[in-house]
Every structure is written in structure tokens, then in C-alpha cells.
Amino acid sequence: MTKIITENLHLHYGENHALRGIDLNIHANKITALIGPSGCGKSTFLKTLNRMNDSVPNIKITGKVLLDGEDIYDSTVDVTKLRKKAGMVFQSPNPFPMSIYDNVAYGLRIHGIKKRVLIDEIVERSLQGAAIWDEVKDRLRTPALALSGGQQQRLCIARTLAVSPEAILMDEPTSALDPISTMKIEELMSELAKKYTVVIVTHNMQQAARISDYTAFFLLGEMIEYDKTNNIFAAPKDQRTENYITGRFG
């Protein structure tokens, strides 16, 4: 089943043609990895999927992005609903300077949920979903910034889960973490794919190979190749993909 489709997606930052006609079908409940050398447009592409680059000055986006068949760039779209449905986890762990509990409850309160019992319940469920509940359940009221980097990133995932997204967009979520925290998040991602559609940008090819079901290779704003992860790594069709994954450039 397809969750997100992009059709002939072009993006210009002023003169910079950063995305050059991307056509991609992102499958529901799978992990799709976006790989490619830095500056090739992975983050830019990810942000077009929940319109996080709307406010960039001089940006021009053409083509289509369909989420469950609806064009997210249509003028009738409520961006806040879109972002609730397609949540995002950023590169560096960035909890708010509030308690662990308030971090997870943040999105709920934004969306007008006031009932204490309900918030308690969702906070617990989200922290469990992000595999951090056992580590923090006794100190929900303590500052989130006192957690370790890896815990903070899982907390940020919990914060995203709390607003019940259907897709989760992650931009290099482990690049600021140590190997053990990275491993925990990778395990978590496989777990998440059971319920959510996961799109992850990574500059780490081993990571893409380990965890993703599909891989898209980007180069200079173009999508060069997209296939099942096994195929991409075992038998890439394009010479440029092969060069990249064998480490000949990038």
C-alpha cells in the first residue's frame, strides 16, 4: 500500500534548484531510507512531505505530494492537521526546557486536549511506544534536558507519537548519538514500522541497509534510484548508486 506519492516534485531555493523532479512512492508501514551525499537534497525532500519549508523565503515548489491521495499543497489543506498526520523527528535531540511529561503532553495541549486522565494515558503510551517509559516513569516531572542524548532523542520520538501521526519523518535521527543509543533507536524504528510509515534520512549506509525496507538514492537534487533495500545494496542498477554505496565518492 502506498502512503505518500510525489509526482514531478521540483523545489527552488531562489536560484538553487534543489529538487529536480522527484517521483517516489513511499509504502505504508515500511521504513524508507533516503541516502546520498550531503547537500543532495535529502532534508529538503523530507521537509516538503510535511511542508516544513513553507516559510523559507524565496522558495518555489511545483509538482505534487499526495498523502493518502490528498495533495498536501492544495490551498484547502490545513497545515496543522497535515503536520499532526506526518510527524517529524529532527537531527539533534531537542526536547523543550520543560519536564519529561510536559514535553510529551505538548502536542496534545496544542491540539486542545485538556482532560488530565487522557493526557496521562497518552503520555504513558507514547513513552512506551518510544521504548523509554521504563527509564523515565519515576521521574516524569524532572527536566527533560537532564536526560542523556539518546534518551532525549527517544523522548522526542515519544513527543511526536503523542499526537498520533500516521507517518514519521526522521532527519538523521541518530547522527548526534553514540553507538549504543543509535542501536536502541534502530531497534525502535523497526518496532515503529509496524504501526507507522517511517521515512528516514541517513548518511550512514550501514544504517540504511540494516533497518530499511526501501532505499532511495539522491544525488544533486535528483533521485537516481529507488528500490527494495536489498536490491539497492546487492545489485544497484545505476553506476552512480554503485559508486556511492561502494564508497567511491560522497
Binding site: 496543522t80 529532527f90 531537542n94 502536542g107 511526536t160
Partner: peptide, 18 residues
């Protein structure tokens, strides 16, 4: 205040004012 806080909040579906 780090710009990230704003981004995170928007990405959770908040309005600019929120």
C-alpha cells in the same frame, strides 16, 4: 531561544502563535 523549538512546535501541528 533556539530556532529548533519553533520548528519542533510547528512540526507537532501548532500555529505560529501557539
Amino acid at each position: 531561544v533556539p530556532k529548533q523549538y519553533n520548528d519542533v512546535s510547528l512540526a507537532l501541528g501548532s500555529s505560529k502563535m501557539q
